[in-house]
Design a protein around this nucleic acid. Structure first.
Lengths: 231, 231
DNA sequence: TTTCCTGTTTGACCTCGATCAAGGCGCGTT
DNA sequence: AACGCGCCTTGATCGAGGTCAAACAGGAAA
């Protein structure tokens, strides 16, 4: 297989609703690519030259101020779409948090293909609307929630997002999981500093709400307490 | 005219790319409706029963916590689309900030119509992507900017958004404009308190950066200074 | 004109989370 | 085992912005 069939075939987001012929055509356009943890895929303010599809791994979407403050504005999990179709520049950088595999398309080709295949555009629209909902919920967190509330909300979201990953069967939220974020990155998601994040984590541990087996591992001991704290 | 032809015809967002027959069909579905300032159009967590198109006026999109904290997560101007197609519930309340006129569609009808008219879905996709970009830029503001930066950014955004309104010719950003927000609402947009907003406004006035002819009026005296402050 | 009402400004104070500064821990390398 | 290097935690202190309270418009009604 010269192109990345499985890359598209595995992807329920893009494929649903397309027939075999369409899937084959999309496959021929895409190029599978491995991205190592920490490696960038798209730079903020770059010309929007490519769009991609996450097959495996987790990536962060960030914007930064000139003086180096960073805010993570989105997180892409397997089956998520990244990049900016129908736009001249992308407004966010994309960097892999874990080793990842993605399926990359030239934006021009993808745009053209999408316009000719309404089913694909419809899928894209549904996902974009869902992402907008999620982003708006995050605005409430950033603008109005306290540090303890932010941390609790974050842990609950993580436990849900990470349980779905790569699994067709819908499991409940994960009780124990491995964070794809460093403490600094958690801070960048929540609009906090690394020290505040650390302090809140240890506070929750001391209160018996969570356990921290290692730096990246989290185990939720008392979910109801976490839900109450999330507000 | 029994239905709201002009409501659709005036709307460059929805109409561009549709032929006359399609516009007529859309028109037959929509119902023009006036919304008084302060009046709600959609409630948070309601079943998503309608979608709409802003013809005139400004509306706010909000989410709230149970204890009453509010965050404005979006603002809809003329030609903007509001509501949640293809979704069971809407995640935000929509309330008019000024007297407004909108063109309302039953969500079911609209969904069906959209799926049959790829050009409409494409338009919708482009707008949703643009709105997502704008929302992500706002996340950076909420998570990482200081109060003075937030206020400066807000004033610049207002001066741009309010100059476009209802005018086909692309003017530059407005030098003087009338805020569609009360101080409390500005606070809800920026994740601040009303007192902080007020103090920052008077500080800018004392520094000669802006003038405040009345409660709602703003005149920008020193735009470069504002740009510098916005960061 | 005066009164009232609501939204805004201003002041005094306090708190949460940021900042600054050590230390500690896990882990790979020599 | 000892060292070095990131990352994380913990402590001490500070300050931006929140909270509480009072005074101050500006517009509508009497």
């Amino acid at each position: 297989m010269s192109s990345c069939d499985t890359c598209v075939v595995r992807n329920r987001a893009i494929c649903a609703g397309l027939d075999n012929q369409e899937i084959a055509a999309l496959s021929a356009m895409g190029r599978r690519r491995a991205v190592a943890a920490g490696e960038p895929l798209i730079w903020e303010d770059d010309d929007s030259l490519l769009v991609a599809n996450v097959i495996e791994g987790v990536l962060k979407l960030t914007t930064s101020t000139e003086d180096g403050r960073e805010q993570i504005v989105g997180v892409a999990y397997p089956s998520d779409f990244i990049g900016r179709p129908f736009g001249q520049t992308s407004k966010a950088s994309v960097v892999a948090l874990t080793d990842a595999r993605v399926c990359v398309f030239a934006r021009n080709d993808f745009d053209r293909y999408a316009r000719e295949h309404p089913e694909l555009e419809h899928k894209l629209l549904e996902r974009t609307l869902a992402e907008l909902d999620r982003t708006r919920a995050w605005m409430m967190l950033l603008g109005r929630k306290t540090a303890p509330e932010k941390i609790a909300t974050f842990l609950l979201e993580m436990s849900e997002r990470l349980s779905e990953t790569g699994c067709a069967v819908k499991l409940g939220p994960a009780r124990r999981f491995s964070l794809p974020f460093s403490r600094q990155q958690v801070a960048d998601v929540l609009g906090l500093t690394i020290e505040t994040v650390s302090r809140q984590f240890t506070k929750l541990k001391n209160e018996g709400v969570i356990e921290l087996p290692s730096r990246r591992e989290v185990e939720i001991l008392d979910r109801p307490a976490l839900v109450a704290l999330a507000g």
